[in-house]
Write a protein that binds this DNA or RNA. Structure first.
Lengths: 206, 206, 206, 206
DNA sequence: AATGAATGAGGATTCATTCAT
DNA sequence: GATGAATGAATCCTCATTCAT
């Protein structure tokens, strides 16, 4: 459950595996976005990726493997991008900037986010567990920043509150991806971000 | 697009239609919860509902109709329950109570919520539009309360801010349904609700 | 392992099941005879049986079920035919007649025999066990007749010998089915039978 | 049709061809024994043989070639082993010893025998004809010994009877390979052999 | 000679939907 | 109104074979 869920391959060349999987993931995301996991066929995925159905199956075992690779890849990308920005001062400004950075990552990858959250329930059990673990890691990133602020005396929260607020921050970012159809009519991502920072950090009461 | 999406029937007797559809919806929710819309078969739905596949198709046209009925039914139930409680004073206490009421409805119906949000993307175009409209109506309920508070001088927000905060309140409630696997280990629904009210209304800054 | 291996069905009407399965078995035997189990497709089986592929799968779960039904049906038919003729006197004449009867059944059903013995190895484990049990029952029929002859003083054999001779008689009959391509050039079934009776019962030494 | 069926090769070096084919045959027999010809894949055969799928196809043209090589190799081995022992006196003792020798060869190679007889039906037409010819040659070996006994006055049989008895002797030997699952519980190969000699040469009547 | 990545035709199975009873 | 047998398009996946390196 802790270990990375392995996707078995017939092919041996590691570089080739990486290359083909990138093609595959990109193809899959663009198809899942439009039709969802179940309505996208393995043939379509292969074609969109630029190779034959036979080749697709040299790099995966089942269609669900594709979904897993997509989810794993998205999490890794988000993690990498968030890690580029790790504030360490424990100021509220740091927290604000972390949120801004995260929300901009979501804006860049909102198709991927929507696909991941809508389809991950179709993963086989242990792949799902792995993905949920990754989700918690995302929450922990924010939790650590919050704890930093608490220790620096900038925030006055219990551990339990900090954890919940971390969830809140993560979910509010996802909201932008999921409700883009409604929200983008009214706000730009920058407006959205600043408004959210206002209410989440400082409350909506005047 | 604005009108209620109609589900055609062979049967004439309105009472019977209502009865069979309730059986159907209940069966579908419990199946979709476990296997999702795509993996649940119409045969299973019919069986779980207590009648034959032939009978199922007397009351719907396509499998997607079942999903639509499920979503429609959930929204109506939530609407009804929220309408039981419509505060009109424009106090912050009213707002808090509205949130409490909404979050407790979500707690009661969290399976239904999860099913609805995970599967509604599989609705045909115009049924989806109808459902999204319903979703906006939910947001508007909170928006109105917020506007009430603004007018009463309890909150100091622009219209744009009020709308976004309404979304936030709605989404944070759904968070309880979607992240129950993680959150319920740490908080009861009451604790969750009070903590959320704290941060959303009054901010997390000390 | 002892119980009859069950083949699950979607259809409820028992008479219909029986009818469709007979069509299926007949179609399968004629195809397996020509192409073997693996090269015959389920579509061909359905078509030959006179219904659609969908209908075929209403009456079976897997392609191997077809093979099992074929084997089971053949054994039952042979058993029934052999049971029509059960000598009880313990004379050598009885034994001879039993052999004659068995060999003529094999002549009638040699396609079926060949199919069954060539393909039964493809059965899933517990279906195979069931079929092997049936095979032993066939041997036992002859063993009993032999024991009858021993008790009547017509033959002087140990139990162990009787069992082996029963196998021999059964296998020699099957030889007619398997080596028809060579044997029928030289002998009619009647000649074959009488020559076999000679050597098996009375030896080839002058 | 009479000529040896040729398996074409890209490779020139005859020694290498022989070596690779031996690896291939051994691998194939062990796989066919477990999974049968159809379920064993060419990839598995190559891997078990210790080389790549590409290399496998340097030494054969089609998968059926592998099966042919297996059958051919088994027949040749049996022939060689039987030829080591060719009695020429025309005594019944010679006949008995030939049978003993043959049955012990079968005991040594029973996996190979089972594979050959179960799978040879999958050979392409002219390879099958070649193999059937080989089978008849096996029968002829015994037929010759029988004729020797007849000429020496030890047996009193017509040509037609001699040929049938030759088939019988060959098939009874194969019985040991095919019914090992049942027979080996009751008899050792030596017991089996002696009992068979008794009944086949001297009859079971007291 | 050896390798192994690529191919795609082919096959088993599923399941939404229909329609005769 | 209710039933459930029949249908066949759709889909996942396999595997023999090829060919560039």
């Amino acid at each position: 459950m802790d270990k990375k869920h392995e996707v078995l391959t017939t092919v041996k060349d590691e570089n080739l595996i990486e290359k083909r999987r990138q093609q595959m993931i990109q193809a899959a995301v663009s198809l899942f976005k439009v039709k969802g996991f179940h309505r996208a066929t393995t043939r379509e995925i292969a074609k969109e990726a630029g190779f034959s159905i036979g080749t697709l199956y040299e790099y995966i075992r089942t269609k669900e493997d594709v979904l897993y690779l997509v989810c794993d890849s998205i999490y890794n990308e988000v993690h990498t991008k968030l890690s580029e920005f790790t504030p360490e001062n424990g100021t509220l400004e740091d927290l604000e900037n972390a949120v801004r950075h995260y929300y901009s990552v979501i804006d860049d990858m909102s198709d991927e986010f929507v696909v991941m959250y809508q389809e991950s329930k179709s993963l086989p059990k242990n792949a799902l567990e792995y993905v949920l673990k990754k989700e918690l890691e995302m929450v922990e990133i924010f939790q650590k920043i919050l704890v930093g602020c608490i220790q620096a005396g900038e925030l006055e929260l219990t551990e339990a509150q900090a954890k919940l607020y971390a969830h809140t921050l993560v979910v509010q970012g996802q909201m932008w991806a999921f409700r883009r159809w409604a929200l983008s009519k009214e706000y730009s991502i920058e407006q959205f971000t600043e408004l959210q920072i206002q209410v989440l950090l400082y409350g909506m009461k005047k």
